[in-house]
């Protein structure tokens, strides 16, 4: 499982209700259901992933986050999770608002575009970074709203979003020490536990 998901798991209380936005094939929800006995629902738009999630025995709803989440009631989930999708939605700030309305707590993870490799790539080559981790070219990428750790925290401040905890994932080879010390420069993935 992706490293950010392993980190998130500890923040989810056993037996709680979890809404997973852009849940993919449901690997994370399945693990939460098996290990933490959560009652989970996943939203997804990719046809293959939806079938895979349903085949795992999960509750998967085909729903596009860009069309809103107004079918979910206020405070109807303990935790709303969105892993690696913030950068792919049309209005990230509005999705965050909706997540915080629906869930008492939220967990968001995103790739940190301020990481030194991105800066170096853009700075030295003058072109949008393409890597194994972010393999798309600028014109066909689903990732339309890249941000940095600092960008995200400033958005939280503007919208009075409370950051309960944060965790940073760095490249596998340095144990994440640098990522935790200087996240905006060294974290590849940022993980935030937030609430209203």
């Amino acid at each position: 499982m992706r490293q950010d998901l392993t980190h998130i798991q500890q923040w989810i209380k056993p037996g709680s209700r979890v809404l997973d936005l852009a849940c993919g094939d449901g690997e994370f929800l399945a693990r939460l259901q098996a290990e933490r006995d959560v009652k989970g629902i996943g939203l997804e738009i990719d046809a293959g992933s939806i079938s895979a999630g349903i085949a795992r025995g999960l509750n998967i709803i085909e729903q596009n986050l860009d069309r809103g989440l107004d079918n979910f009631r206020d405070d109807s989930f303990d935790t709303v999770v969105m892993a690696h999708a913030l950068q792919a939605v049309r209005y990230p700030h509005l999705v965050l608002d909706e997540m915080l309305r629906i869930g008492r707590e939220c967990i968001v993870t995103f790739p940190n575009f301020g990481q030194w490799r991105c800066r170096l790539y853009l700075g030295s080559r003058g072109r949008m970074p393409v890597s194994k981790f972010m393999p798309y070219t600028w014109y066909d990428t689903p990732n339309i709203h890249f941000c940095t750790v600092r960008d995200f925290e400033s958005l939280c401040q503007e919208r009075a979003i409370r950051i309960l905890q944060r965790d940073m994932v760095g490249p596998a080879n340095n144990g994440g020490v640098l990522a935790k010390a200087w996240p905006n420069l060294f974290a590849t993935t940022a993980i935030y536990h937030i609430s209203r």
């Binding site: 629902i41 046809a47 939806i50 079938s51 999630g53 349903i54 999960l58 509750n59 998967i60 709803i61 085909e62 729903q63 079918n71 979910f72 009631r73 109807s76």
Partner: peptide, 13 residues
């Protein structure tokens, strides 16, 4: 939506 609001187990495609 009604099933979700009622807290039922539901999948949709």
């Amino acid at each position: 939506d009604a099933l979700l609001a009622a807290g039922k187990s539901v999948s949709y495609a």
